[in-house]
Amino acid sequence: MRFPRLPLTLLMTGLLALSGCSTHQPVALYQLDSGQPGQPSQAAGMAVVVGPVSVADYLQRETFLQRQPDGSLSAATDGRWAGSLSSDIDQLLVRQLAWRLDSQRVVLAPAGAGFSPDVQVLLSITRLDSGTKQPAILDAQWRVLDRRGQVRDNRIVHLEQPHEGSESAQVQAQGQLLQKLAEQLSTAIKPLANQPALAQEPATKKSSTPVQVRKEREKSRIPMAAPIRTDMEVYRF
């Protein structure tokens, strides 16, 4: 007696699918390595605002991207970011700068009311990625503003970090690049610790409207003609 082959085929397909599910590896979750920054000791150190920090659009996703030799990007199949990469970048920079400047007054933008920064850092990150055979690369531009809002330093940076090729090694290399960026920023910020205090505005300001002085009409220097009565009317000047 011959059994129909169709049900047996479906049964084998189902068993293979279940076997594949049981051997599927869980997706690895990654976070940037912030190194080992120490705890800042000065509660009254420099007041620094970090941000706004602009991150390239292609980095604002949970997908862990791999740079290919031809320059293209592909999504990793067995790994992704464990949250917001932009948020990880912000927190890494704040911790690194607070440690390097030895100040607990390093905050993210926007700063709270009443916080008067000595320095503000404007940062734009246009590239942060790596690949199995490609080094980790960071492209960024930053500006440092003093307490008057004037640009005191401006720089475009390109940093590279080699790694061993695995995804975990790539994540570690990307974190090291951001640590190097924080080191450069702290070097640019430290000279601004001795800024002169802001000059206080005078209590009363002089009016900018010129006072109009009413000038009296100048009298004519030419004497008025006065008639002299004689037999003939003669006018003497």
Rank of each mutant, 00 (worst) to 15 (best):
L8D: 02
L15N: 01
L18I: 14
S19D: 01
S22W: 15
T23H: 12
H24S: 04
G38W: 14
Q42I: 04
A43W: 09
A44L: 12
A44I: 06
G45M: 06
V50R: 08
A56Q: 13
D57E: 13
Y58Q: 02
R61F: 06
L73K: 05
A82K: 10
S87F: 08
D90C: 00
Q91L: 08
Q91R: 14
W99T: 00
L101D: 04
R105H: 04
V107E: 02
V107C: 00
A109F: 10
P110N: 04
P110W: 11
A113C: 01
P117F: 08
P117C: 03
V121F: 02
S124N: 10
I125V: 14
R127F: 07
L128D: 02
K133D: 12
I137M: 09
L138Y: 08
D139E: 13
Q141A: 07
R143G: 00
V144S: 02
V144T: 11
V151S: 11
I156M: 04
I156W: 14
V157D: 03
V157L: 10
H158K: 14
Q161D: 01
A169Q: 11
Q174Y: 05
S186A: 15
A197D: 11
T204Q: 10
K205R: 13
S208Y: 12
V211P: 00
V213C: 01
V213P: 01
R214G: 01
R217G: 03
P223D: 05
T230A: 04
M232L: 11
V234K: 12
V234G: 00
